[in-house]
Amino acid sequence: MTAVLRARALGKKYQRRWALTDCTLEIPAGHVTGLVGPNGAGKSTLLNLAAGMLTPTAGTIEVCGGRPGSGPAQLAKVGYVAQDTPTYARLTVSDHLRLGARLNPSWDDALARRRIERLGLDPNQRAGKLSGGQRAQLALTLGLAKRPELLILDEPVAALDPLARREVLQDLMEAVAEHGLSVVLSSHLVADLERVCDHLIVLVTSQVEITGEIDGLLATHHRLVGPRRDIATLPADQHVISASHTDRQTTLIIRTEAPILDPAWTVSTIGLEDLVLAYMGRTARVGSGSGSGRRPALEVLR
């Protein structure tokens, strides 16, 4: 499996604050990868690094086999639809298509025109007068018609109403099916990610908590409910992600490759949302305690 994005010990520091630290991950090609995490976890920073908008402070990042933003050949391979889907307010829709055609040798004009027509956008409309959803569609059109190997989308649907959101995702998925491009998108709408993604990265407080194929993640994470017990007594191959106790009962979310044999547990599957929340909540709790408590928790994960 070839990687479309490979980061090693990647870090980015703004003035004095680290927005991303020690990020090591691989995103396989041909997948739609979702990036989730709370606000300020470093999602945008990671995506901006991948698009070459930022340069790393530490570590390395390689996208489509090259250093992000290193030259025209690299820029041609990566499409990026930034947060809030910026467009030139004073330029018309057709001006934007012309911009794309003039600035990208790989521009697929037929695709762009077909999309604009199907979306019902008036080519003579100024982009500043478009609705949020239409603007997002225009920005997505620019990203798709460039025909990149990897399309990066930073919160592409965050500001949209449910209908516009669905339309954008439908078009995106259709393009993925048609052109086989890889996609990395960030969102905090887990329900959307569950639909469109087959690969997931959970980023919390500037660190990668877990990454993997969604089906695999769901198959290896379980909710255990049973009589109260100390989690230290669990088998070594069961990694506790979250635990809560009442005086009688213990509820755990664990990760394990092996079948759960202990008959005391009632085992159930968990959804993606619960899985993501378990990881986010875990770090929030551990992070609020002493700094030394955090490291072992991460070691367990790896």
């Binding site: 070459g52 820029l75 930034a82 910026p86 990208n104």
Partner: peptide, 15 residues
């Protein structure tokens, strides 16, 4: 200010 540099810099043209 308008954020459009993010659009411009992601075409096949270096900064």
């Amino acid at each position: 200010e308008a954020g459009t540099y993010r659009l411009a810099w992601n075409q096949t043209v270096t900064r």
